[in-house]
Every structure is written in C-alpha cells, then in structure tokens.
Computed example of a mutant assay.
Amino acid sequence: MPIRHSSRSVSGFSRRTVLKAAGAGSALSAVAGLPTRLFAQEPVKVAAIYTVPVEQQWVSRIHKAANAAKERGDIEYVFSENTSNNDYERVMREYAEAGNKLIIGEVFGVEDAARGVAKDYPDVAFLMGSSFKPDDAVPNFAVFDNYIQDASYLSGIVAGAMTRSKSIGMVGGYPIPEVNRLMHAFMAGVKEVAPDTKFQVAFIGSWFDPPKAKETAFAQIDAGADVMYAERFGVSDAAKEKGVLAIGNVIDTQADYPETVVASALWHFEPTLDKAIAEVKAGSFKAADYGVYSFMKEGGCSLAPLGSFEAKVPEEAKKLVAEKEKAIKDGSFTVEINDAEPKSS
C-alpha cells in the first residue's frame, strides 16, 4: 500500500487538482505553438515539498517567503507537506512533470534520489535545503541552508546576560551542520558575557516531536538550567511550566510565551528565494550554494525585538548586541561557522 502524505496549496485546492490544471495549461500552450520565452514576465511556477507540517519552524520561513512572492505576483505557488522520504522522489517528479520551473524543498534524508531527479529534468531549477555542496554534474540543482549563525550569536549574548545559574540547556533535532553551527554560535555569544557558563546539549532524533523535546527540556531544567535554547518546538513549553527563560530559533514565538521567550534568532528566506526566482526568470539558474543569502549582511537573519523583555535585559548586553550587529554587517567581525557536533560542558 503506498505511503500517503498530506498536501495543500495556498489556494485551498489539493495538489492533485493543481497538477491536473497545470498539465492542462501546458497542453494548451503546446497546441498553440507559442514559444515560452514570450511569457518571461509571467509568474514563475514554483512548487515546494516539505517533509513536515508548514507550521514547523524551518519550513514555515520558506513557506512565508513563497507566499510573499506569490502575493507580489512573481510566482504561482503550490506545495506538499508531510511528505515522507520514501515518497519524496515521486512527488518531485510529479511537480516537474506538471510544468513547475522551480522546485524547492529539503532533501537532508534523500540527497542521492533528489539529485537523480534533477538530472532527469534539466530544464527545471531545483533549490533544496541540503548539508552538502552543489555539484557541477547536476547544474540545475542548487543548495541552501539556514546560515543564521550571526543572529544566533547575538541571541547568545542576551542569554548570557540573563542566566543566573550559569547553566544553559540546549535541545536540538539532529546533530547535523545546520543545527550544529547555530548552537556553536549561540554558545560563543553566551561566553562573551558569561564565560563560565556550562551547557547541557541533547538531540531528540526528530524534526517535529514537541512532547519529546519538552521532556528533554524538563530533564535539563531539573539539572540546573535556567535558560533554554529552544531549537525545537516543545522546549519553550517546558521552560514556561518550570518558570525559566527560553531563547527561540528561526521564528519569533514571544507572543505565545511573553514571560518566557527573551529573544529569538530569526531566519528570513526571502533573499534566498528572491535570488532564485530572478535567476530562473533570467535563464541563468545554476548549481550554487545559496547559503550566503541567510547571512545577516544579506538580510537573511536578524535578532527579533526584545519586546516584553526590553526593560529586563541589561543595558550592557543590549549595547554589546548593537555593537556586534554593526560589526557583522560591515564585515569587521565574523561569527565562526562550526559544523561539528556540540557537546555538553
């Protein structure tokens, strides 16, 4: 029995309906015999494939950027969510066959299969979240990752100023480069203001398991952590229940935890996606590493406003954050990118 996956489009139609409509449109163009270059200014047909719900932190930022491009009229946008790794290749092929010119997603568990699909559709641009580098042998397959170490570093400065126990808990999904580098940057920021801080590091082996993340956070709080690095959903819930603080990752959840989430390192996928759309429209899309568009100097990340904690974070820490942010943007200071698995200390 085939594995089923949930799929939705922003217009509310099912993916199957969208694909049929797209196929019909392609057929009409073929009958009319009109060259595609005449429609260069029409919206680019974009499809996204997500292995988790669009509410999940990382994917939600891609989804947000795609919707913004759709609202501007730059793209048409359909997507599938909760697509299993076993089903990923099939969905990629369906979207390619439907005439989509740019397919985005995350292929951390299906690297070889995804690149194989790209080889079979050389006229389709693929922009995929990946821990690996682009390969000239697959010239239409570009990679990206959330290189938001700049914002993570700044959030660490805030955390270092707020911890009293000098023990910080960190709960991540998997120890892969995209997670590791953010944790290391956060820890470096903490040590700028609290060099004697110790860290409890744990990975739950899932991208979306809030109950497991919550239980792991409980254990770290019971062991003395008074600030939690919430790389996964569920950690801030534990912090709220235990009356400790949390630092967010990728999205800003302070509105949901106004007395718990002090600061968050935000990822902005818009620069990455907008660059890809421009390249597709210009016919110049190629194998490249789009990770640089997540850097702070490119507008790809930022520290969320302190909001309800504005008056609670020490002025010295806020001043240091401002100084470091300026230095990061003007290039006089570079946050180290360390992809090695972080360890407890």
Rank of each mutant, 00 (worst) to 15 (best):
L154Q: 05
R93F: 00
D112Y: 12
G23S: 15
Y95M: 15
V262H: 02
A263V: 08
A278H: 07
E241W: 00
V46D: 05
P342V: 03
K326F: 02
G283P: 05
L306Q: 09
D209Q: 09
Y153I: 03
I75G: 04
M1N: 15
R37W: 12
K318W: 03
R90N: 13
R4W: 10
S130V: 04
W207Y: 14
P210H: 03
G173C: 05
A263C: 10
D135M: 04
P177A: 14
N67W: 07
G23Q: 15
G129F: 01
M92V: 06
G243M: 05
P134V: 02
P305Q: 13
R61Q: 14
F108Y: 13
V91A: 10
P177M: 13
G172Q: 03
G25H: 15
K101R: 11
A287P: 07
E315Y: 04
K45D: 13
G12Q: 09
P342G: 05
T260S: 08
G248P: 07
G300R: 05
A288N: 15
A118S: 04
V54A: 05
A22I: 01
E270L: 11
R16E: 14
A278Y: 05
E89L: 06
I328V: 10
I75F: 04
H268P: 01
V179M: 12
S152W: 02
K297I: 10
S332K: 10
F144C: 02
Q200L: 09
Q220M: 14
D256R: 14
V235R: 07
D112N: 13
E259Q: 14
Y257C: 01
Y121I: 01
E336M: 08
E315L: 07
S29I: 15
V44M: 04
A278W: 04
V54N: 13
L273G: 01
D74V: 02
L34K: 14
S80L: 06
S130W: 03
T253F: 07
K312L: 13
I3N: 13
E341H: 00
S84T: 14
L19K: 09
H268N: 13
V313W: 01
E241I: 01
G283N: 05
